[in-house]
């Protein structure tokens, strides 16, 4: 379910390190919790983010959810196509639904995030509580 080629946060985001860049999106679990996504707000390229800082907003018909920077760094790229067709967040959250590419100030920082197995068990324990 959750690809092994990337890391995950407790805020249900994924981070895929690609050389000195890190691609970021929300997980399948997050999109499923949100329901049909209809609105997305992303930062400008060049914005410098602290880890944990809000960098955007994703909204479904029913709910608003903030996006939190999983790593500190500079925004190198944003998925502007996704802003006009945010439904890709539901249909392909781990692929076409990517949101931003960050150039992390500490490329090793991603290592401290959850791996796929750790994230899966987080989601399963959350599902049991719900």
């Amino acid at each position: 379910m959750y690809p092994d080629d990337r890391r995950y946060t407790k805020e249900h985001e994924w981070v895929k390190v690609e050389g000195d860049r890190a691609r970021v999106g929300i997980t399948d679990y997050a999109q499923n919790q949100l329901g049909d996504v209809v609105y997305l707000e992303l930062p400008e390229v060049g914005r410098v983010l602290k880890a944990g800082e809000t960098f955007g907003t994703v909204e479904s018909v029913k709910a608003v959810s903030e996006l939190y920077a999983p790593l500190a760094g500079e925004v190198a790229e944003v998925n502007s196509e996704l802003v006009s067709s945010p439904e890709a967040i539901n249909t392909d959250p781990h692929g076409k639904g990517w949101m931003v590419v960050i150039r992390p100030s500490d490329p090793a920082a991603a290592g401290a995030l959850l791996d796929a197995a750790g994230y899966s068990s987080l989601v399963e324990s959350g599902a049991k509580q719900a």
């Binding site: 329901g35 049909d36 209809v38 479904s60 018909v61 029913k62 539901n90």
Partner: peptide, 8 residues
């Protein structure tokens, strides 16, 4: 039930 297949 808030949704089945999807709200939209």
């Amino acid at each position: 039930p808030i949704e089945y297949s999807g709200l939209i």
